[in-house]
Each structure stands twice: as structure tokens, then as C-alpha cells.
Design a protein around this nucleic acid. Structure first.
Length: 593
RNA sequence: GGGGUGGUAGUUCAGCUGGUUAGAACGCCGGCCUGUCACGUCGGAGGUCGCGGGUUCGAGCCCCGUCCACCCCGCCA
């Protein structure tokens, strides 16, 4: 079998030459006399023509061709007759006149129309993933993913990083996400866990003097799925020695700059905008702000105090806050439409939504609670002009931030405020610790190996572990990288001093014994000359998703799972033979109907 | 675990207030067609209305349960 060229590469310059190509039958237009076939391979489409005058034999056989038959053809490339060129495709000036047709494989009628696959049920696409992946859009996604990985791999290689593999069969880590477990046949009753990330191993590689490590690696978390979360996903994981925060940030900025230039020919602005965690919460209500549009949250507590609206005053008196956003041009909304907005806010957890229309003065059920000059100051702060709608949420900080950040995103979309492009940000100065109400103890916001800020180390070492205010004020050398409202990665400078690590466990109320059991091998390693080190992990799936403009990471993963973590194609997970369970000393305890 | 949307022909969908034989388009099968590119044209086949139960003289439509897919909350250090 010969294959001289790819379908999508046929050009005018090929006219006159005799060549062979192969691919899948995409569309056929059978005129009885002439038969036109759009032949498709990974590179694209080209039209081939069967004529009874050229090769009666091939023409007769071509009547039986159907969608997705795999064929090889040879013949002459000819210029298309005047007026029949197709300017919509790159191969549209020429066509191949077939004199020999070889049917390499037939195809059953398809379970769904591939051309309208975007509308097909996703279950169907996932079941017949090999067909879904044949679609040019999906092939483009995976080609992009390949190129993205390659650029990052090359970049890190140039910067002196070594790609080192870490174990997939590893030790369960009790904190964090639920583990996927693998039973050990040779050690009855014992289990490996699939890694949630190579965190401990990459730090050990630093102790081992590898200095710069990276890996493009699968990670596993047994938690519920979302459009941007799969049970197995890919991280671009890296760690470096003798660095501080700035080294990691500028390394990543360089990587993103090169990535977007090489893959998409887009110039990304560096350095990235930096926001403290606190500032991000204040201005956007979350720690992964979409910076492609404004609609920022403004604090209204001081102005609220100058009025007599009880809801606002109560919120402030109960350690809450009053914040607002401004809906441009939304004063035109009817009472009914505003009621629907309120219902939306309530579905996000708010008790209600207070609003003031800027329309012939101020129009609102709550306007009467505020003097005119206060209303004017509110409008001024929100930059609200005639025709705008100011929306207020008053509640505990968590609820206020959450509701308004989601209102902001919903309105940003509805009002078409989101500008195209790619807006990166670093979120910095995270709190080191987070108070867990349920367990009534502190938890590490990032993970227990994250270093406090230099200034905070002494504060922590010398402080009392029951001093809740002091501990809450500690900041971490942690950083998240955010792109268009998605957290695409995060990392930190790690603790390399034994005394600091020991204190950290004390603060987290993890006993020495517990720590030893959970992370013993890392703690051992830290005793033998650990260099200062830090790193970051990028979520490759999310990054690729954003870059190709997909709305789910399923569209950039070759074989993803459904929301119930089921593989529609292979049928995993499944029951296994009793023999297999017996070998593993496992008895199942599943309720039967 | 919770909230929402959807499930009718191979596919995408329509199906009114519960009422005769459940429709359309695409696809499929057969015929015609020498410049199409979503080719055209004539004809034909194709249905466990997701599944189970209930209400009713009568259920695709109403009620209860259940399964699957998707979106979201919880969860994801």
C-alpha cells in the first residue's frame, strides 16, 4: 500500500501528478454518473472523483462506499473545472481523479451523525469515543494538547529540569482528598494508594539533590466530578532547590509566555498581575478572579451605617459585611426580572438582594432608609450612572463573597462584559492556616509542608499554639496561578527546617506519632540536609481546555469518565471474578436488593 | 448526600387540556441522476415513548419509585 500525501495537503502545485492517498469516507455525493467523495484523514479533507470514463471498475465499486469506510485510492490530481472550485477548504482548487480504489475496511452504519456530533448526547459520544475522536474538532484538541505538553517539556528541559517518574503505587495520605486504593496481594489487608499528586516524592527528590525536577503525570482523587474535574487528571508538576517565591513565579511566567507564543502566537503580558488573597476576595469575592471584565465588588459598610436599613445594620453588627456590585444599564429591568435576580442570589445562599435603581434619582424599596447624599456616595463608589442598578448583599463574609462573586460571573456573561483574551493572575499571601469549625482545629490551607512567610516564622515558633488570632494572621509562601477565572495551578515554598516543620504539626494538632505514620519518610529525609525548595503544579487539562476554548475538560481528554466516574466505553469500573477477590483477601459488603 | 435540566425511530427533536393508527428532519434500504461539495429526486423499512409500579373507561402526557447523562452545591489539604 502506498500513501504519498495526506488528504489535507493536496494543493494546486500537485496538479498533474499521480499519487495515492488513504483515509475515511466523510461525505459522498453519488450522481449515478460522477461520484464525489470527501476523503478525510487527520490532516483534513480532499475531494476525490470517480468517473465511469476514467475507471469503470472503480466507479462501480464506489457506489457501495458508505460513511467512514476506510479506503486507499490512487489517480491523477487535476485542477477543478472552472466554477467548481471550493474556496472554503484549502484543498478546494484540486481534486483526485481515481483510477484505482481499494476498500481497506467497511464500516457499519454509524450510531450517530458525526457531523452533528456536537449536538449528540454526551453519553453516546463517550460510548463510541473512537468516532467522537475522529471528528476534526476533537483531533484539533488532542493535537493542541500534545503541542502544549511538548512546549512545556522543552522549556523545562532548557531550564535544566530533569523529568523523573514517581511511583503510582504509593502510600495513602489521610489528609486531603479521598484516595483510590489498590489492594496488595503479597501483603494481605494492605493497600497502596494512587497518588493525589507526587508532592512528597518531589520534595524527597530535592533532598536527594536532583535540584530541578518536573513530571507530566497522572494524579488521582476520588471526589465528585465537575465539568473541570475528573478522577484522573494530569499535572505538570515541578520542584526546584535553592529558590524562593520569585524564582518560581518568573519561571512560570516565562513558560506561559513561550507556551502562548509558540502554540497560539499570542503575546502574553508579563509579569502577571498580582493580587493578595485578601484583595482578590475584596474585589472579586473569590480567589480565582476572572480579570477579563470589571463589575468589581465594593464595600458599603461605612455608608450602610449612615442609614437605618435594619438588614444592613444587623449584618454589620453580626460580624458581617455589606458589599455591592453595579449592573450597567440594568435599571430597565422590570420588578419581575429583579425578583428573578433575587431568586438567583438566594439560590447562591443569600437571604435576599437589596437593590437601588439609578433612574430619575434613586428608585428602590430601601432608598427611604438613606439620606440623599449617602445614596449619591453609594452611586459614586460603584460608578453607577443613570440607568444602572446597584445590587447589595449583606451577610456573613463567606456568604457575601460567595453570592456576589457568582452574581458577578453570571452578570458578566449576561451583559456580555467578558472580553476575549487571556488574563493571568497570581494570587499571593494566602493565610497559612484555616480554622475548621467542625473539627475545631486549624488545617493547612495549602498543605502542611508550606512555609510561612519569613517574617511569620519567628512569630509562629515563639507563639502560643492556642493563640488563634496570631495563628490566623500567619501568611504562607503559597501561590496560585489563575487564568480567566480558573485556578490552573498552585504551589508553595516548602518548609525545609525541622524545627519549623515540627511546630507546624503542633499547630495542626498532628501528634509526632501521627506525623511519623503519615509522612515519616519525608520527615526522615528532612533530617539529612534538605535544601530550601519549592515548586508548583499546573492542571494540564484545565489549561488545555481554556486554550482550545472548550467548556469541559472531557473535551481535551481522550477517554474521560462520566459524572459517576464511569467509563461509557470500557465499562469500568466493573465487578471482578470471585477468584480475584479471594487472592486479594477481599470480601465485598454491598447491600443487595 | 442535596438541588436543577434532560431521556419519544439509528440520531436530533416535535407531540396541545389525558382521547382514533405516535410525527418531522437527518441517517438507513431500493430506484433514477456526469460537476457536486449539507448534491438532488422518487419510493420503502424503522418505536419496549429509559425502567418498574399506580391513578383512569383510556397514559408518551398525571402521581410514586428507580436508572442513566449533563450542570451546580456539599466534597476536591
Amino acid at each position: 500500500m502506498r500513501r504519498d500525501k495526506n488528504c489535507g495537503e493536496i494543493r494546486e502545485t500537485d496538479i498533474g501528478s499521480s499519487i495515492s492517498i488513504a483515509g475515511w469516507v466523510f461525505r459522498r455525493r453519488d450522481h449515478g454518473g460522477l461520484i464525489f467523495i470527501d476523503l478525510r484523514d487527520r490532516s483534513g479533507l480532499c475531494q476525490i472523483v470517480f468517473s465511469p470514463d476514467i475507471a469503470g471498475d472503480a466507479h462501480t465499486k464506489a457506489h457501495d462506499l458508505r460513511a467512514e469506510y476506510v479506503i486507499a485510492v490512487s489517480g491523477e490530481i487535476r485542477k477543478r473545472p472552472e466554477g467548481t472550485e471550493n474556496p472554503n477548504i484549502p484543498t478546494g482548487m484540486a481534486e483526485l481523479y481515481v483510477n484505482k480504489l481499494e476498500v481497506l475496511n467497511e464500516a457499519s452504519p454509524l450510531p450517530y451523525n458525526m457531523e452533528e456530533a456536537a449536538d449528540a448526547g454526551e453519553a453516546l459520544r463517550l460510548k463510541h469515543r473512537y468516532l467522537d475522536l475522529r471528528r476534526p474538532e476533537m483531533q484539533q484538541n488532542l493535537i493542541m494538547r500534545h503541542r502544549i505538553s511538548k512546549v512545556m517539556r522543552d522549556y523545562l528541559d532548557e531550564k535544566g529540569f530533569l523529568e523523573i517518574e514517581t511511583p503510582m503505587l504509593t502510600k495513602s495520605t489521610p489528609e486531603g482528598a479521598r484516595d483510590y486504593l489498590v489492594p496488595s496481594r503479597l501483603n494481605p489487608g494492605h493497600f497502596y494508594a494512587l497518588p493525589q499528586s507526587p508532592q512528597l516524592f518531589k520534595q524527597i527528590l530535592m533532598v536527594a539533590g536532583m535540584e530541578k525536577y518536573f513530571q507530566i503525570v497522572k494524579c488521582f482523587r476520588d471526589e465528585d466530578l465537575r465539568a473541570d474535574r475528573q478522577p484522573e487528571f494530569t499535572q505538570v508538576d515541578l520542584e526546584m532547590s535553592f529558590v524562593d517565591r520569585e524564582n518560581v513565579l518568573s519561571l512560570m511566567e516565562g513558560m506561559m509566555k513561550k507556551l502562548f507564543k509558540d502554540v497560539m502566537n499570542i503575546d502574553v503580558e508579563t509579569p502577571f498581575q498580582r493580587l493578595s488573597f485578601h484583595e482578590s476576595m475584596e474585589r472579586f469575592g473569590n480567589d480565582k478572579p476572572d480579570l477579563r471584565f470589571g463589575l468589581e465588588l465594593k464595600d458599603m459598610a461605612d455608608l450602610a451605617l449612615k442609614g437605618t436599613f435594619k438588614v444592613f445594620l444587623d449584618a454589620i453588627n453580626n460580624r458581617g459585611m455589606v458589599k455591592a456590585i453595579n449592573g450597567k444599564g440594568m435599571a430597565a429591568l422590570s420588578r419581575k426580572e429583579i425578583d428573578m435576580l433575587t431568586a438567583e442570589a438566594q439560590s447562591f445562599g443569600a437571604k435576599g438582594l437589596a437593590w437601588i435603581k439609578v433612574k430619575n434619582g434613586f428608585e428602590s424599596p430601601i432608598a427611604k432608609f438613606f439620606p440623599e447624599d449617602v445614596l449619591k456616595k453609594m452611586a459614586e463608589r460603584l460608578e453607577a450612572k443613570e440607568g444602572d442598578l446597584m445590587m447589595f448583599v449583606a451577610d456573613k463574609p463567606k456568604v457575601t463573597y460567595d453570592v456576589l462573586s457568582r452574581m458577578r460571573l453570571a452578570l458578566g456573561e449576561r451583559l456580555n462584559l467578558i472580553k476575549p483574551g487571556y488574563k493571568f493572575a497570581w494570587i499571593l499571601d494566602f493565610p497559612l492556616l484555616e480554622w475548621d469549625e467542625e473539627e475545631s482545629r486549624f488545617q493547612a490551607m495549602h498543605h502542611p509542608f508550606t512555609s510561612p512567610m519569613d517574617d511569620d516564622i519567628e512569630k509562629m515558633l515563639s507563639g502560643n499554639i492556642n493563640d488563634k488570632d496570631m495563628l490566623s494572621s500567619l501568611k504562607a509562601k503559597a501561590y496560585d496561578i489563575v487564568l480567566n477565572g480558573y485556578e490552573i495551578g498552585g504551589g508553595s515554598i516548602r518548609i525545609h527546617r525541622q524545627d519549623v516543620q515540627k511546630k507546624m504539626f503542633e499547630v495542626l494538632d498532628i501528634s509526632e506519632e501521627d506525623a511519623k505514620m503519615k509522612f515519616g519518610f519525608l520527615l526522615d529525609a528532612l533530617q539529612y540536609g534538605a535544601p530550601p525548595h519549592g515548586g508548583i503544579a499546573l492542571g494540564l487539562d484545565r489549561l488545555v481546555m481554556i486554550m482550545v476554548g472548550a467548556t469541559s475538560i472531557r473535551d481535551v481528554i481522550a477517554f474521560p469518565k462520566t459524572q459517576k466516574a464511569f467509563c461509557m466505553m470500557s465499562g469500568a469500573p466493573s465487578t471482578v471474578e470471585p477468584k480475584q477477590l479471594k487472592e486479594l483477601h477481599i470480601k465485598t459488603d454491598v447491600p443487595v436488593e
